[in-house]
């Protein structure tokens, strides 16, 4: 009956640690479990360093182990979660909104015949029937969705709940899943990933710049600002279309979605498609020469000024602030 979460970890090549979203899921599931009078079970896949999960309220960890799970395979991973959910007779499974979890979730929902809601942003509004609040229409609205499965599955939007520490200890058990050969119809042949950089998906802060920067040669100060803040860098669509920055940095409706704690937009006027992609970020700072730029309408803080004057000063002041 326990609530099941998938505690996703980074690939071994990137350190193998749990993603921060794993702890957010644990915090969320613990809160739901308390109101339901049940416990939280986390599933890990080929990952045995489980201590941290208990700090966020996980009561039991099921460590799935299998040589065929070393490379990510959505079908296999969904099958593992399905088998554990059935073993634990879970009524609710909570996944994160990482690229991999969003790939797994619909397969898992079919496997479990579960109702599924993505982009969930709050604790359940009602438990019988289960009602959840999710974003829709590119963050222009919320919708309350009623899930009608015997078991239900939700994907929690990143940074929508936060981390809550709990004093607890987690039991752990090993689990050997049964994998189907049909999963081999999709196989990974290679990964191209920039290493050593904070990705937009993992970052708590994103520094993003647009055409106001005038050219790719001026991105040094953006990268420096990002490095001072421990932030990822991003860009607007015109900038990636012009080839000033790689496509992987393009954020907005047709690019990557951004749901960070702090989003700093520099020299981006704020086309509706851009705002749609970044609007679920908690705090937005806009720096632009044009006081009429539409982005100011949705920003929390704004500076009307020339990026070439403001950013170097901001870097100096932030360095002094960080040194305190």
């Amino acid at each position: 009956m326990s609530i099941l979460i998938y505690a996703e970890s980074a690939p071994d090549a990137s350190g193998g640690k749990f993603k921060k979203t794993a702890f957010e899921l644990a915090s969320y599931a613990k809160k739901v479990a308390e109101s339901w009078g049940t416990t939280v079970t986390a599933v890990t896949i080929n990952h045995n360093e489980i201590g941290e999960l208990a700090e966020y309220g996980v009561d039991k960890v099921v460590c799935a182990q299998h040589a065929d799970l070393n490379a990510f395979n959505a079908k296999n991973y969904a099958d593992v979660l399905k088998q554990v959910a059935q073993k634990e007779q879970s009524k609710l499974v909570v996944l994160s909104s990482t690229t991999d979890s969003l790939y797994i979730a619909p397969l898992l929902s079919v496997g479990l015949q579960a109702g599924y809601a993505s982009n969930v942003v709050a604790l359940p509004l009602g438990n019988n029937p289960l009602q959840v609040k999710r974003t829709a229409f590119s963050n222009k609205a919320f919708v309350t969705t009623e899930l009608k499965g015997d078991c239900n599955l939700i994907s929690l939007a990143k940074n929508s709940f936060g981390l809550v520490l709990a004093n607890g200890a987690a039991a752990s058990e090993d689990f050997t899943p049964t994998l189907e050969s049909s999963a081999n119809s999709v196989r990974v042949t290679g990964v191209e990933q920039s290493s050593g950089q904070i990705t937009i998906a993992d970052a708590d802060i994103v520094v993003s710049a647009g055409r106001g920067l005038k050219g790719p040669e001026n991105w040094g100060m953006i990268e420096e600002l990002a490095s001072v803040l421990g932030a990822a860098t991003a860009c607007s669509k015109p900038v990636s279309d012009l080839g000033w920055r790689p496509h992987s940095e393009h954020v907005g409706q047709t690019g990557k979605p951004v749901a960070t704690n702090l989003y700093i937009a520099i020299g981006i006027s704020g086309a509706i498609q851009h705002i749609a992609g970044v609007n679920s970020s908690k705090v937005k700072v806009v720096i632009n020469t044009d006081p009429e730029a539409p982005f100011f309408k949705v920003a929390d803080y704004g500076v009307v000024g020339d990026a070439f004057e403001v950013i170097p000063q901001l870097i100096q002041k932030l360095k002094a602030f960080k040194a305190q």
Binding site: D100, S185, V188, V191, A201
Partner: peptide, 13 residues
Amino acid sequence: REIDGGKERLTAS
């Protein structure tokens, strides 16, 4: 397919 910070290459039947 797009993954966080890059891309993954796959073959699929």
